[in-house]
C-alpha cells in the first residue's frame, strides 16, 4: 500500500508496511479463538430448605400451612406429597416415568392441577434418591419452575 504525501509540488510515495499489523492480528486472533467460549451458560435458581436444627417454631393456633414436596425416585418416577391446610391433608400423587426417562408433560399438568386446586401452595421442596444424577435433578427443577418459580432443594 502506498499513497502520495505532501503537496502537489513534492509528492512522495509512502509505503504502509502491513506485515507487523498482520502479525499482531494473527497472534491476537489466535489467542481470542483459543480462549473464547461459545457455550451459553444459564442458571437454575433454587434455595436451600431448612434442615430443622435450631429453635422450634412458636406454637401457632391456625392450621398448618400447605406444603408440597416432590421426590425423584429411580425408574423415572416422581412422588408429589401435599401436607397441611385446614384439614391437615396428607395427599400423595405419583407421576410414573415413561420409557427412557421422566414424564415431564404429566408432571407439568399435575403441578398445574395442584396449583389450581390449592393456590396457597407457592413453594415446592425437592428431594431425590441418592443415586439420581444431577442432570435429571436440574431438568426436573427447571420443569417445576415453569409452573412454580419458588423451588427449594433439600440440604
Amino acid at each position: 500500500m502506498s499513497g502520495p504525501v505532501g503537496d502537489g509540488a513534492s509528492n512522495q510515495d509512502v509505503d504502509l508496511n502491513l506485515a507487523p499489523i498482520i502479525d499482531c492480528f494473527t497472534v491476537l486472533i489466535t489467542y481470542l479463538l483459543v480462549t473464547a467460549s461459545f457455550l451459553t451458560l444459564s442458571s437454575v435458581d433454587v434455595s436451600v430448605s431448612a434442615t430443622g436444627t435450631g429453635a422450634p417454631p412458636p406454637e401457632s393456633t391456625g392450621p398448618p400451612p400447605m406444603t408440597m414436596a416432590i421426590e425423584l425416585k429411580a425408574g423415572g418416577n416422581l412422588e408429589i406429597q401435599i401436607r397441611g391446610g385446614a384439614e391437615n391433608k396428607k395427599l400423595s400423587y405419583n407421576v410414573p416415568g415413561e420409557t427412557g426417562g421422566w414424564n415431564m408433560a404429566l408432571l407439568t399438568s399435575r403441578l398445574q392441577e395442584i396449583q389450581g386446586k390449592w393456590p396457597a401452595i407457592t413453594e415446592v421442596s425437592v428431594t431425590a434418591e441418592p443415586a439420581i444424577i444431577y442432570k435429571d435433578i436440574v431438568s426436573i427443577l427447571h420443569e417445576i419452575q415453569n409452573v412454580m418459580p419458588k423451588v427449594y432443594i433439600s440440604g
Binding site: 433454587v46 436451600v48 443415586a131 440440604g155
Partner: peptide
C-alpha cells in the same frame, strides 16, 4: 449423584449460603 449434591448443599447452608445458582 444426588447424595453428593445433597452434602455440598448442606455444607453450603451451614456456611450461610442458601441461594444457589445451578449453572447449566
Amino acid at each position: 449423584p444426588y447424595s453428593t449434591i445433597k452434602r455440598v448443599v448442606a455444607s453450603a447452608a451451614s456456611a450461610g449460603f442458601v441461594d444457589l445458582q445451578l449453572v447449566v
